[in-house]
């Protein structure tokens, strides 16, 4: 025997809180995103391909993706180092380092943008030094990379850190007594179990870099076909009232981000399961 209608929830407030949540999400998240899909829907495949196939869009995408990849590589390495140092060592100033990791996340991107130019411009402290060596960072592809490193380093560190804290110190000690060489020890006992979280950290960092705007545009130079990122191109198309083109580029960026995040999620679960069965 079953009750005729589903029993009401015991704790009060279900309808109210669900109602508020659904209303908010519909107006603020679902509707706007469907707005993009709606615009894309009005666009045929051929139109879409024409927008995306143009030299300028392709260059912008290439610049964005390669810079994001380079920044992610740096963040993967330094993210691991920072996470390791913060969770394994106790030293004076650790708290300060820990707080500094979050600073790029807390700092508004436009502020980060002008700060980075101030630093890497020829007249800036670092830029001046590099200029002596004949190197230029500001207003080049390298500037874009620097900005992306800046804004996404917290994501890499904070994804890897908990996993290091959970690493089994006993296992490391066992490997030591079993006579594993330091490099073997690092690969087998440290790197392997951290792989899922490194993947997440690197993935989040990459997705964040793909979409970064404020920090990048000040230092990028924004030369079409050279140092123009995809986000900026969307904005330019918008200013030209070319909504279909803006929507096409934006839809591509969003789809790429969501697919990447979903893939990371799945890969992480698989990897964790695999590592567990191996252990």
């Amino acid at each position: 025997m079953r009750a005729a209608r589903p029993a009401p929830h015991i704790l009060p407030g279900f309808s109210l809180s669900l109602g508020i949540s659904v209303l908010f999400l519909c107006l603020i998240v679902l509707l706007p995103i469907s707005g993009l899909l709606w615009q894309l829907g009005g666009l045929g495949w051929s139109d879409y391909l024409q927008v995306m196939g143009s030299e300028r869009v392709l260059t912008a995408l290439r610049v964005t993706v390669t810079a994001a990849a380079a920044a992610t590589l740096v963040n993967g390495v330094f993210g691991l180092i920072l996470a390791w140092v913060l969770s394994r060592y106790r030293f004076a100033g650790r708290g300060v380092l820990d707080a500094l990791v979050d600073l790029p996340f807390a700092l508004p991107t436009a502020v980060a943008g002008i700060a980075l130019v101030a630093l890497y411009d020829k007249s800036g402290w670092v830029g001046g030094l590099l200029d002596h060596l004949g190197l230029q960072v500001a207003y080049t592809w390298w500037g874009i990379v620097i900005a992306m490193i800046f804004t996404s380093i917290p994501f890499a560190v904070r994804a890897i850190q908990p996993a290091i804290e959970e690493l089994d110190a006993a296992e490391e000690a066992a490997a030591l007594t079993l006579g594993a060489s330091p490099s073997q020890r690092f690969r087998l006992v440290i790197l392997r179990p951290l792989l899922p979280s490194i993947l997440t950290g690197v993935g989040l960092s990459f997705v964040r870099s793909l979409g970064e705007f404020g920090a990048v545009i000040f230092i990028a130079g924004n030369l079409p076909y050279k140092t123009e990122i995809a986000s900026l191109l969307i904005l330019i198309r918008l200013d030209e009232f070319d909504y279909p083109a803006a929507a096409a580029i934006a839809g591509t960026l969003m789809a790429a981000s969501l697919l990447l995040l979903a893939a990371i999620n799945i890969a992480q679960t698989r990897l964790q399961a695999y590592l567990r069965t191996e252990a």
Partner: peptide
């Protein structure tokens, strides 16, 4: 990403 959000 921010620009995409604004566009939406």
């Amino acid at each position: 990403s921010p620009i995409v959000a604004g566009l939406c």
